[in-house]
Nucleic acid binder design. Sequence first.
DNA 1: TGCATTTTTTGATCTATATCAAAATCGTTC
DNA 2: GAACGATTTTGATATAGATCAAAAAATGCA
Lengths: 185, 185
Amino acid sequence: MNPLIQQLRRYGHLNEAAEKEIEQRINYFSKRKGEHFLKEGQHVSSYFVLSKGLIRAYFFKNGRELNSWFGEENQIFGSILPVYTEKPSFENIQFLEDSEVYAIAVDDLNELYRKYPELNLIGRKIAEEVCIVLEERIISLHTESAIERYQSLIKLQPNLLNRVNLGHIASYLGITQETLSRIRR
Amino acid sequence: MNPLIQQLRRYGHLNEAAEKEIEQRINYFSKRKGEHFLKEGQHVSSYFVLSKGLIRAYFFKNGRELNSWFGEENQIFGSILPVYTEKPSFENIQFLEDSEVYAIAVDDLNELYRKYPELNLIGRKIAEEVCIVLEERIISLHTESAIERYQSLIKLQPNLLNRVNLGHIASYLGITQETLSRIRR
DNA sequence: TGCATTTTTTGATCTATATCAAAATCGTTC
DNA sequence: GAACGATTTTGATATAGATCAAAAAATGCA
């Protein structure tokens, strides 16, 4: 089954007609490591799932790249601003490995919400789950030291360490690579 | 009109039957400064609006209180974990001024979602808006210095400074009161 | 008005993390 | 397997912010 449909089903019931039309509107992409899926300033965006691969979201601050999150297989992602509002994205989404992506564009999504209002239940559940993840990150940044944040990340995304280099992790944690290297020792 | 209904209407259309039933389930509370609305460990919780007053959400870390957010008039609030999941709250919600509150309990809310599925649109929009607010806070904590975070807060909630003491603000910003005092100079 | 309590500021010192530079290690390719 | 670039570690020093203590200022209240 389509991996994006599969994920949607985790949040609530999908009736047959809606499922069929969603499936028709889902786009498949195969992307190489280093390619971008979204660049800052873009309005177009989508909810998407990786059936294979790894992505990072990052943005620029004072000329430096800062990672805001990493995405692994079989989870729904999207860039909050362009998916939930009319505003352009301030972040970039880039593949860190060769990846396969199933995506549904915001415009299609909004049309589906209109056509099949029962989809709002799934949309609500997804957004609520995103809130919970974001709140955990806030608590981590608000209350934890660099070491603790590193440990929290390991607990949450243990595979990440084998898949991306230290610089990326440090940037996500809000510390320098040197500090992260010392912490690990 | 009921202040909570008024806020709900900002997110989408409420049909008459749903609105009537929501209104019946909304509870009104009048609370004095210092009283609590929610304590950690509780499962029961609600979406609510202040028609008058001010609240803070806080939790304990290493025996110290840390403020996680402040709520002013005419905005929908809730504690994420107990409202969006079955999990108990880890935070406390306390009134910082004498306040008037209109609230709908999670259990009632969920029953209404079942009975009037079109409410899921409003629920989705609320959760999506919460995501945007949370993302801004993450960026602030991730990328800004204490001074910048202070300035961001002033921009977002300018009245707060006249309504709560420095200790509360410092705790929200994740710095000590002494540092905040020095920053302001 | 004056006293007690709370809040804010100031001072001295300490600590976690940043910065800049260089060395060491790892991985890849010819 | 030698050589190159990328990644990680180590070292020396600088800085933002924490901590602890105390003084000053503001606020509440009898």
